[in-house]
Write a protein that binds this DNA or RNA. Sequence first.
DNA 1: CTGAAAGCGCTAACAT
DNA 2: ATGTTAGCGCTTTCAG
Lengths: 335, 335
Amino acid sequence: MNVTIKDIAKALGISIATVSRAMSNSPEIKTETRERVLEMARKMNYKPNIWARNLQNRQNNLIGVVVPEFITFFFPEIIMGIQEVLNPLGYQVLICSSCESSETERKNVCMLEKNMVDGMIVSVSHESKNRDLFERLLNEHIPLVFVNRVFEDLPSARIVIDDHKWAYKAVEHLIKAGYRKIAHLAGNEHLSVTKGRIQGYIDALTDYGIPYDPRLLMHVGVQQQVAKVGLRYLLSLKVKPDAIFAVNDPVAIGVYLELKERGIRVPDDMGLVGFSDSPTGKVLGLSSVEQPTFEMGRKAAEMLLWQIQHKEINTETLVLDAKLNIRKSSMRQHH
Amino acid sequence: MNVTIKDIAKALGISIATVSRAMSNSPEIKTETRERVLEMARKMNYKPNIWARNLQNRQNNLIGVVVPEFITFFFPEIIMGIQEVLNPLGYQVLICSSCESSETERKNVCMLEKNMVDGMIVSVSHESKNRDLFERLLNEHIPLVFVNRVFEDLPSARIVIDDHKWAYKAVEHLIKAGYRKIAHLAGNEHLSVTKGRIQGYIDALTDYGIPYDPRLLMHVGVQQQVAKVGLRYLLSLKVKPDAIFAVNDPVAIGVYLELKERGIRVPDDMGLVGFSDSPTGKVLGLSSVEQPTFEMGRKAAEMLLWQIQHKEINTETLVLDAKLNIRKSSMRQHH
DNA sequence: CTGAAAGCGCTAACAT
DNA sequence: ATGTTAGCGCTTTCAG
């Protein structure tokens, strides 16, 4: 059995109220009494019961985070940013992975609700199916912030980068490097980031007078293993592409490995640009758009805190800056 | 204000006990009453207060996990294994990163204690300084399992692989591939995995008649950025090594990149083997020892559950199998 | 400054 | 089968 304030009170011959006050550093207590209580608490190895306290305070300093996965660096870095802000403030973070499944995502969110988290930070799974669920959360005024993968039509707080702009820059870079038949391996259709990146791709081509050819655009998803299928399709085309802009680094890496396998040289035979700048991409010399992952996490945490503290839902969208890192995968020597 | 069983009871004109029984699916209740309660609960959007329940049950189904980092694939995979077992059973997992700092690790553990987790799974930070802390936990009979990085002299549950054996195999492989001056970039001195891998390295050399040269062994730590320093040292030696066995993949990758930078060819001029088989190492063609990460997590969770259920500390060490993946970084064509 | 007492929402005897 | 009641450990009025 654990030691409670009752035990301390009894041992000291004082009331539990006094002990409680000593513990919570209340001003209305004699310094001497407090010291005696603290001393005894230490001696008896007292540990406050957090559930009793939460029950009283109706707040548990728990924040839920739901991400699609946390095996690759991207979401872990966001999570670190979140914890960096929240942990020092005494918040605990419950991390859930939806494993890119909307069903699991729904379970995670319900579980977090059951655990009465003070708020949630979510990056939605690639199917982006649970609009109704998050709408309900919003209606119930549960503080909620979306990061990276969002629902555009939901009045919620959001942390994103300008996918359109950075996709545009990536494709523009390929054009300036001399590539002309630029393909795009896009993510899942309903994913927020997919749409922005596709439009950026199309707009860059158009602006540089390259007609957009829908056959060079294929939705493959966001995982490395699907890249092979996409590449096979692109290479089967009559007019093969000379460069590929991939929706993210895992897909770009999948493409890279498959190209190597087939003896197609990067960047000479095929230019390649990814998105999100993974460590693996970096060592492979893959050009990529770098997102400020830690900062995204920090900002998401701050925006959530604001909502919790102001007891008010925030519908602001914060657009952070990004950066195009050019490496050898898109630096053709001659063409 | 949230709806409580009291509200439901009042709305239905019944007692709170009946409502409580309906909620917990007690057998001693009329089916019809239960349905009416459940119906009303749904209508009123009732959500059970988990703190009140925990206060009553003195159990919160919370498990704490402390890992050194979760940016690279390794610990995330272990964590996924843990969650795979624990989540379906209704446990929530609190994930903390010690950021390879013993001080942060101590804070994390204390925080988890404060949150009254039912148990902890820990992989200690590379300094391995908090022996006293974990000893206290063990003395207080808090269920605890170490994974991967352990304290050998603490009577605790442990999930590991045979570092000695697999380091031996890695070095043996280099020897059989024709390398003779094999160096070892080792991890932090007090880290459990470091010791086993060093001994495996030494024993393999000895068994194959290659005298162990202490100058070819250097403690560099476990992070990619320190590899450069280690390599610079090794290349400054009079008798330069022709192969390097690195304590883990990050270090091996750091070495790989630096070798490339300097125009030293892998595997022809320098053989290279890592440890833990990272995705990045994989795409670089780095030979490495693969650890069963998911399985380690699953087993750790199971061992912890056992302790929780049996209310008894377990001091078993479970040694899982591993695998040496040979890739081109150690496949010299000729020598 | 300290104590008595009520109550947070729920469960589990104990009654009926 | 249902209701009554006493806590779980803590905080917080309200008295003194």
